[in-house]
Each structure stands twice: as structure tokens, then as C-alpha cells.
Design a binder for these strands. Structure first.
Lengths: 195, 195
DNA sequence: ACCCACATGTAATGTGTTACATGATTTT
DNA sequence: AAAATCATGTAACACATTACATGTGGGT
């Protein structure tokens, strides 16, 4: 039920449509939750039947109607109860690290190229977060608790990207040094272990 | 098909049983991939029918038989082909950050307590990784490419935990300062936005 | 007596991804 | 003329979690 709660956390801030939520999950809150519109519409329907949110249909000119969802009294209380419960750390399932762990099976430049690509991706994300910090979170200590809470999650995003970039640098340097010191660029036979 | 490749990455290193793999996913490789035994057994069966791995049944005394799986020539090549393809960064879905983003709905000490709990969890994990670094990765620059590859993933685990701990400290300090400077410990009415 | 380690699986349920579907308006 | 934005959904499939199921041997 975690996506449902993530949706609630956005709706409690301000009533909005499934389409609006989709854009937020794809943008400003994308560094701690991802969801597609199909999932979002399904969960919105479920939350409505549970009575956590209500919908108001808004007719528009030249555009499709939109359904604006807002959190009910019950929904607000359910969200608060959920926040107060302990949470487990995120499960990590990182394909790049699976590949890195067996990167000795391919030539070093192949791995280095992929690490450089990720370095670039994380650098771009970091720049985006830095812009957000400048634009929306100036003088944060004098802002409302709502903004301060959101700021903490942005800080996590910033740190995560910085740290990832740092690891890419470290890994690239390490592999480059290994390449120059040892002669063999990799393959080798599978070790004939017994089970 | 990502779990299947993660399994392959462990089997290519040395032939082993589903039970052995389960323990590894729960331990030494847990910082980049998680899986339960139910999933692992299912994927092993699938990989065997695809011809990427073979099984050898080993009878044991006083214990259940075990099936020892090893990577075939085809499987090895498939793994290598997969490594060489580009990978997307991990999708992040972090419940703690959803909660943090709306933590203004609960009293500050509730949030601080949970952040301290996570600080502790990550500190424990970090200690474990540091032990592994000391025990298995001494003089890594003189070790085989197999060990060097694995070392890079451990370094990512270490950095991740250090960074997470740093964020917990920062967030706890921030919230503590906010608590002492402002009077209101939170609730407040929902903002009556229009959609 | 009870629980943990060893060792493998099935079944049901829940969650997430990919593909398909529609249709007007605005931008390139 | 083609593509993107707005706006909502259904359906099929893949993947993950939780519960259930079995049976021996060793430690507390």
C-alpha cells in the first residue's frame, strides 16, 4: 500500500487530478517515488472506494474533463497514523552493481564507458536538484513546516546524486589503474570449483 | 529478467545450490540485490529449461539432497552479452522519504525518533561492510580481476551507508533547530486550495 | 520440548510494467 | 503534416511478497 500513501502525501498538500499527480511522480518527487499513470489511476479509484479521498469532476472547454481528488477527514487521519509507524529501509536492486560485480568478464573500457554514462546521468539530475534548491528553498529556516519537510527530501536527493558521482569517479579511476598495471584485459576460464 | 541475471552473476563465480544463493542474496550481495528463496527456486527452474544452467543432484547423509547448479557455455555468453548492454539507474521508492515529505503532520519528536532508528540501522550495516573490507579485500590492487570487480560494489555499499548516515544527522539537526525556534509542533488545517 | 539450520518447493495474492485505446487542441 | 500536451482509462503480463508445506539433525 505504499504507492497509495505516496499519492495521499501529494493530495494532502493540495487537491489535484491523476494527470497532475503523474507529472509530479515523473518530476519533483521522482527522487523518492516513481509511478506511471496506469498505476496512479487504479490506486485513485481504490482510495475513493475506501473513502480516503473524494473526487470532483471539473468540466473544461477544449479539453477533457478532469477529476480533482481531495483527501477526506478519514484519509488525513489514516495518513497521519501511517507516518507514525516505523518504516523499513528501501530495498536496493541495482542492475549496474550486478554488472559491476562481474565486470571482469568484459574488457575494462566497456565497463568504464558505462560508468561514465552514469556519471553524466547523475550529474544532470544533480544540476536539476540544485536549481530546485535555489528556486524554491531559499531561507528555508524561515519558511513553513510544510516547506521544511519537503526540503529534507530534496537534501536526500542532492546527497544521493553527489555520492553516486563520487563512486563513479572512484570506480573509473580504480579500473583505469588496474588496466595499466595488469596485462590481461579479462576473459579467463570459469574456475572449475566443486559444489 | 533482472533477478535471473543476478543469479547468473553468482553462479558464474562458482556452482552452487538455491539454498546457497538465498543466503548470499540475504547477506554479502544484499546491498545491491534482494531476493527470497521462493523467487530464486522459480528462476533457477526457468534458467535450467532455457539451458543457461545445468543441475547436478548431490545426495547427502543426514541432510536433504541438494541441486548444484552451474552456468553452461550458452549461459556464460548470455551473461556477457547482458553486461555489455547499457543499464538504467535504479528506480528509487523510499517510504521513509514519503513520510519525511509530510512529516509536518506529526510532532517533530516522532520524526526525529524514526530518523535516529534509521541512523542506527545504517550504522550497523556500515560496520558489517567495513568488516568485509578488512577481511576479504586487503591489498586489493594485487588481487585478481574477480575480486577487484566485487570490491567496487562493496565500495558502493560503504559509500551509500555513510551518505545515508550523514543525511540522518543533517535532518535530525535541522528538525531539532526548527523545533526550538518555532512554537508550533505541527498539525494545522489543510490548505483550502482550488484545483 | 522447542527452535534453528539444512534443503526444496507450491499457491495465492499483491504490485508494477507494457501495450492498447480514445480524442481534441496546441506546437513544431 | 506530424508530434506533443491534455486527460482518462482497460487488459495482459511479469515480477515480488506472504503464507503454506515437508522432513531430518543438532543445539539450548
Amino acid at each position: 500500500m505504499a504507492l497509495a500513501h505516496a499519492i495521499m502525501s501529494l493530495l494532502v498538500d493540495s487537491p489535484q487530478s491523476g494527470y497532475d499527480l503523474t507529472k509530479k511522480f515523473d518530476g519533483s518527487v521522482g527522487y523518492f517515488w516513481k509511478a506511471t499513470h496506469q498505476q496512479i489511476y487504479k490506486d485513485l479509484a481504490k482510495l475513493e472506494t475506501q473513502g480516503w479521498i473524494d473526487a470532483e469532476v471539473i468540466a473544461q472547454e477544449g479539453r477533457p474533463d478532469k477529476k480533482c481528488y481531495s483527501v477526506t477527514q478519514l484519509g488525513r487521519q489514516q495518513l497521519i497514523d501511517w507516518i507514525a509507524q516505523p518504516t523499513e529501509p528501501m530495498v536496493i536492486r541495482e542492475e549496474l552493481l550486478v554488472k559491476t560485480s562481474v565486470s571482469y568478464l568484459v574488457p575494462i573500457p566497456v565497463t568504464v564507458a558505462e560508468l561514465k554514462r552514469h556519471h553524466q546521468l547523475h550529474t544532470a539530475r544533480l544540476a536539476l536538484y540544485h536549481d530546485m534548491e535555489q528556486q524554491y528553498f531559499q531561507n528555508i529556516r524561515e519558511r513553513s513546516p510544510e516547506w521544511q519537510s519537503r526540503y529534507l527530501t530534496l537534501r536526500r536527493g542532492i546527497r544521493y546524486e553527489q555520492d553516486y558521482i563520487g563512486w563513479c569517479d572512484e570506480a573509473i579511476q580504480f579500473l583505469t589503474e588496474c588496466a595499466s598495471s595488469s596485462a590481461s584485459p579479462a576473459p579467463g576460464q570459469p574456475p572449475a570449483h566443486q559444489c
